[in-house]
Amino acid sequence: MATGCASFDEFCRNVDAFLKLSDQSKDGWQRSTFEDSSHQLTPYMVKKNVLRHSVTSQREVIPDTNTVLSTEDSTEDQLVEDDTGTAAAEKTLTESSSEFHQYEYHIVYSSSYSVPVLYFTACKSDGKLLSLDEVWQAIPEYYQTRLQHQRWTFITQQEHPYLGRPFFQLHPCHTADLMHAVLPQGTDSTKRSNYLVTWLSSVGPVVGLSLPLFYSQLCNRDR
């Protein structure tokens, strides 16, 4: 098994340790299982009803040839030339909207990539699902800048492998490379830090899923 990957057995051990600590700390993670055609039970983790405060801004430019605006107004003014070459005032209106979005996170093991995968859904207060573009608008600006060139490949919309419903997914194609860079080299997978915690701490904040510090104890002891 490559350093940056995790076996299914390691994933299951990590899930057990993670959920035990979550139960003790009342952090809200739950265990779910999927039964395949051969009646094998596969565990995965679920966290529901996570509220995130979202603020979005929209800017609208409105030509105004009749009104001279005071610098104390809440709009931005500049002079532009119209088709006749006459200078005219231009107003830029900035409107902000604020609301809470409700997220649900699932962590599933991918046998194809040998890594965990983060699936999630997000909806507005009226129950309407967020579009992919709205999900990107809710991502912190720091991560938007870093991931701009991977915008349409880092987060994709996929069918949930167990539920058969559309979910957003943090695509697992780069997970092994990421984990290869952060995990100690040459360490047996049965003895290394909790892969799940290390991985989730790295990718979760992109979509509003930050781990409390108490999970770090799982990286400082043998399981």
Rank of each mutant, 00 (worst) to 15 (best):
A2Y: 08
T3L: 07
E10Y: 10
V15I: 10
D16W: 11
A17W: 00
Q24K: 12
K26A: 11
R31T: 02
D36W: 04
S37L: 15
Q40I: 03
P43L: 03
V46E: 13
K47G: 02
K48E: 12
V50M: 01
V50S: 03
L51C: 02
L51D: 02
V55P: 07
S57G: 08
R59A: 13
R59M: 11
E60P: 09
E60Q: 13
P63M: 15
P63Y: 15
D64W: 11
D64T: 15
N66W: 00
T67I: 15
T67E: 10
T67A: 00
V68I: 09
T75N: 14
E76P: 05
Q78M: 14
Q78P: 09
G85E: 12
A89Y: 02
E90G: 07
T94F: 03
S96L: 14
E99H: 06
F100S: 07
H101I: 02
E104M: 04
I107K: 00
V115Q: 03
P116S: 06
Y119F: 15
Y119H: 11
T121K: 13
T121P: 02
T121C: 14
A122L: 07
K124N: 13
S125Q: 10
D126G: 09
G127W: 13
K128M: 13
L129E: 14
S131D: 06
D133S: 07
E134R: 06
I139T: 03
I139K: 00
Y142L: 05
Q144M: 11
Q144D: 00
T153C: 10
T153E: 11
Q158P: 04
E159Y: 13
L163W: 11
L163S: 10
R165V: 15
R165E: 14
P166R: 15
P166T: 14
F167Q: 13
Q169W: 04
P172I: 14
T175E: 01
A176I: 09
D177T: 11
D177K: 08
L178W: 02
M179A: 06
M179G: 08
V182H: 01
G186V: 05
D188F: 03
K191C: 07
R192C: 03
S193F: 03
N194P: 10
N194T: 00
T198V: 15
S201A: 04
S201G: 01
S201W: 04
G204F: 01
G204T: 05
V206E: 00
V206C: 04
V207N: 06
V207Y: 00
F214C: 07
D222H: 09
